Simulated scan of single mutants.
Amino acid sequence: MFITSPYAADLERVPVREGALGILGSTTRFWDYGDPDADTTLVLVHGFRGDHHGLEPVVAQLRGVRMVSPDLPGFGESTPMTEAAHDIDGYGRWLREFVAGLELPAGGRVVLLGHSFGSIVVSGSLATASSGVARPDAVVLVNPIGQPALEGPRGVFTRLAIFYYWLAAALPERLGFGLLRNRVIVRVMSMAMAKTRDASLRRWIHDQHDRYFSAFSDRRVVLEAFRASVSHDVSEYAARIPERTLLVAAEKDDITPIEAEFRLQTLFPDAELVAIPDVGHLIHYETPVSAAGAIERFLGESA
């Protein structure tokens, strides 16, 4: 049964165009929202196992900016990379080439936004870029992974996840692939992350995870990306990101506690942090209005 998004009406008012770029052997599909002639272009990078749909609730709330939201290679409708591994270095190269491939107008402002795993991809890409690579004007990280995954308040769940992905890799291809797409396990993950007490919103969140959380191309891609997600975090890159940065964190995040997010803020040369109450790792689903408000204020101040 299809469950209507609570943000559908807002999203319908945002014009959207579809496109594709060939990058590192991947046919990268992307969705181009908002005013194509806006002064500011926001390039969005979604989280692990998701695709561009996950950030659409935030897209629906933003006005006056152009928003380009690709599916990461190997996820959603984008094919895997054949010229790079699906790790932080590979995704970092991909992101730099994707932004360059958009051929954005000279003089416009470019802002990179990463959510969850996307926060590591964005940070790693910026921290390892060579001196001749064009850099963004500002950075936004939503639910940033601010410390090693095993140090989080639910480190035991991370260990269980590591075992789950290890088992998926150890099993024969068909069984391992089936385990990764097991609907019961996906639902357990979704229930663990959702904090809202709104029953209708929870049903929609679970439906979103049912629809898009298993939209990856093959077992190899998702295992490579998982290893990257638990082997790196934003804190190892923060000091090498001079751009003005906004951290949008959640007070009830089970992956990175809010205390670690405040420590993360101090590692950046120029960063501010907005803490959203009563939400966990699903800011983009549960509190997109608050997130968008913080982003719009930040963009206005950094213009």
Rank of each mutant, 00 (worst) to 15 (best):
H206P: 12
S217L: 06
L102Q: 08
P73C: 03
S26L: 09
T41Y: 12
F48N: 14
S123L: 05
L180E: 00
L150M: 11
Y164L: 06
G64C: 10
P269T: 00
V121G: 11
A127Q: 02
I162N: 15
R203E: 15
R159N: 09
G19N: 07
L267P: 08
V222R: 08
L247I: 08
Q61Y: 05
I255Q: 14
S5I: 02
A271N: 04
D210E: 13
R227N: 10
Q147C: 11
D89V: 09
S116Q: 06
L72M: 03
I185H: 13
L62I: 01
L55S: 10
A9Y: 04
E151F: 07
P36G: 10
T79C: 05
R227I: 01
I185T: 12
Q61T: 03
L141V: 01
E272F: 10
P136V: 00
P172I: 00
L42E: 10
D37S: 14
A100P: 13
A9E: 15
M67D: 07
D87N: 12
T266Q: 14
P73W: 01
V222Y: 09
A192I: 06
T28A: 13
V121C: 13
G25P: 08
P15D: 04
I241V: 02
W166R: 15
V58E: 12
Y165V: 01
A168D: 00
G300Y: 02
S116L: 06
L264C: 12
E296G: 10
A238V: 02
G92S: 01
V133L: 03
I205L: 12
L24F: 09
R29V: 07
T28L: 11
